[in-house]
Amino acid sequence: MSAILAAALALPLSATAHAGAIDRTDDKLSAGEVLKPNESVKSENGQYRLIQQAQGNLVLYGPGNTALWGSPTSGATAYATMQREGNLVIYNTSNQPLWGTNTAGHPGAYLKVQNDGNLVIYSASNEFLWSRHAYVGSLPSGHTLKTGQWVQSKNGEYKLLMQKEGNLVLYNRANKALWTTPTADRPGAYAAMQKEGNLVIYSAQNAGVWTTKTAGNAGAYLAVQNQGNVVIYSKDNKPLWSAK
């Protein structure tokens, strides 16, 4: 997963990456709207641009054409759609889903490219559901937390943060650390909720340094609960592991 995302962010960052891109007229991708290859949505201030690239990945560019975020979907012609049930999904030309934000269950949700460079999905009632920095409630199977990204509980009381020194740390609202992985002194490390069921901390060199040892449970996901529990559940919601 990390290698795919790294490839997504390694695309050309010059102005030629934007050549021929068609901008939408606002800063949102509303429910039911589609971004085809070379179509884009820009922030109101014009400094940030989300482009569905011909190479297959959805990429957010900032000032100086710097890639800030990219979906792990390079290598195949694809399109992005803000589905009416609330998911942002990238499909290939055979209409097979390649990646999604796991935000279904919120009809009318929309994606916004903000003036501060954040990429956010809001519900129809403007409730925060997902951003390029954060997940709400859970880290889905196949998704990754890079440095500075986190999963927060739905009530906003707890945050599981991937820190720059390499630890994955659970904080409460008072910013008190409640739990941590023993993975410090590894700058650039990241956490991956692998498709086979393991949560793994990798070093910046892609070496596994810590795991929950929950492999063999395809589709498992990590949850940060309103009570402050960090739990890995199977795809049928059976608990497999919890932070001690």
Rank of each mutant, 00 (worst) to 15 (best):
A8T: 14
A21I: 09
G188I: 01
Q227C: 04
A6L: 13
L222G: 07
W69C: 08
G142P: 04
S40H: 07
R84G: 00
L9T: 05
G216C: 06
M82K: 07
D236L: 05
L5T: 15
V89I: 09
S123D: 08
A31H: 08
L139A: 03
G46H: 04
K195P: 13
L178G: 11
L11M: 10
E196G: 10
I22N: 08
K28H: 12
A19C: 05
T103M: 04
G62W: 05
S234W: 01
D26Q: 08
Y233R: 01
N57C: 06
Q96M: 07
K176F: 03
T181Q: 04
G197D: 01
N175G: 00
S203V: 00
L98F: 08
K146Y: 12
G137H: 04
K159H: 07
V59L: 10
Q52I: 08
A109H: 03
N229E: 11
P239F: 04
S43T: 07
G100W: 12
G188A: 02
Q55K: 11
N217F: 10
G166M: 03
N167V: 11
G219N: 07
V59R: 14
G75H: 04
V136W: 02
N206Y: 02
Y190T: 02
S2R: 15
I232F: 01
S153T: 08
N237W: 06
V209H: 00
E127H: 12
F128S: 00
N217L: 05
N102T: 10
Q225P: 08
N175C: 04
D23A: 15
G70R: 02
I4Q: 15
N167L: 04
A80W: 05
Y110R: 11
A220T: 13
T77I: 10
T214A: 13
S125Y: 09
L222T: 09
L9S: 08
A76Q: 14
W150I: 01
D236W: 06
A191Q: 09
T211N: 11
N92Q: 06
I4L: 15
T16D: 15
Y61V: 02
T212V: 00
A243N: 07
P107A: 09
E165K: 12
G188E: 03
Q53G: 13
L168P: 03
G208F: 01
D26Y: 07
A78R: 05
Q152G: 11
G75M: 06
V230F: 01
T183W: 03
K213D: 13
N65W: 10
P72G: 09
I90Y: 09
V224H: 01
G228Y: 00
T212Q: 02
S14N: 15
Y48H: 11
A19P: 00
V169F: 07
N38I: 05
G197Q: 06
L35W: 05
W150M: 06
G142C: 04
V34N: 07
S74N: 12
D27Q: 13
S242N: 14
G62C: 03
E127C: 01
A7K: 14
T103V: 07
S131M: 04
Q47I: 01
Y190H: 15
L168I: 06
V151T: 10
T77R: 14
E44M: 13
S74H: 10
A8W: 00
K42F: 06
K28G: 00
S2V: 12
Q149E: 15
T144K: 06
K112S: 13
G188M: 02
T103P: 12
A218E: 15
G156I: 06
E157R: 14
Q96C: 01
